[in-house]
Amino acid sequence: MKRWIPVVLVYIALIAWLLFSVFPFSTTLLIALKPKNAFMKFPPDYFSMKLTFENFKIVLSDKNWIKYYTDTIIIATLSAALSVLVGSLAAYSFARYEFRSKEFLMVFILALQMIPAASVIIPIYSMFATMNLLDTFLILILVDSVSSIPLIIWLMRGYFSTIPKELEEAAFIDGCSGMKAFWAVTFPLAAPGIAASAIYAFVRAFNDYIMARTLAGDRVVTYTVGLTMFTNQYEGVDLTLVSAAAFTALIPILIMFAIFHKHFIIGLTGGALKD
């Protein structure tokens, strides 16, 4: 009798948090599936079973929304590529080489990560304003990359140091140059870490709102900023339409995570959670 009690308790806890996790998203989906007039009365109509795909049709045929979306994908992809490349180079150096002021540089990079976004966003704005770079892809790519680089360095350094130096040296002896040995041996071995870093950087850039809202939002519009424009474009609050838009934006991330979340978890936890 005693043995099933903990089992039930554990499952109750897991399922409770599962429902909690999903609750806001399912509410959004419910609203998105409602006809427009469901929220033009008091109290709002949540409970009738009249559902429609009309809102999704409107949103998915909205040219602006599609443009916001592609803008976001471009920014997120390039920024992930940049931060993974730059981050793993630095991490490799920290993991493999001994040099003067290495300790200092590592602390310095970690300390940079502590700088709050709120502290630098105003200067970043005015700095890039004088360079005429506001509202470009480049600025968002740069800023988004920088926000993930410190963590990537930290993560990848751990990865590279678990890969035995001897492997590389063997390749080196076989006639590879230093860089070649890195690409041929170390890089593939560090693949899970790289995958995790890439996903991390992608998601961060994909979801960024404050930088995109402040530094761009005119020629370059990310979907997060676009979502807030949805509310305005139709003046008044059209819950159903905004919800539909929000949900369409969530789906790609959902799919990506359904496929990659194992790699992500394994990469982020250094392989501790393989099951």
Binding site: W17, L18, S21, V22, P24, F25, T28, V203, F206, N207, D208, Y209, Y223, T224, L227, T228, A246, A249, L250, I253, L254, F257, A258, H261, F264
Partner: peptide, 13 residues
């Protein structure tokens, strides 16, 4: 995977 959802969803959503 499901537990990660709130973490990966954008703050706007």
């Amino acid at each position: 995977g499901i537990f990660l959802l709130p973490w990966i969803a954008s703050s706007v959503i």
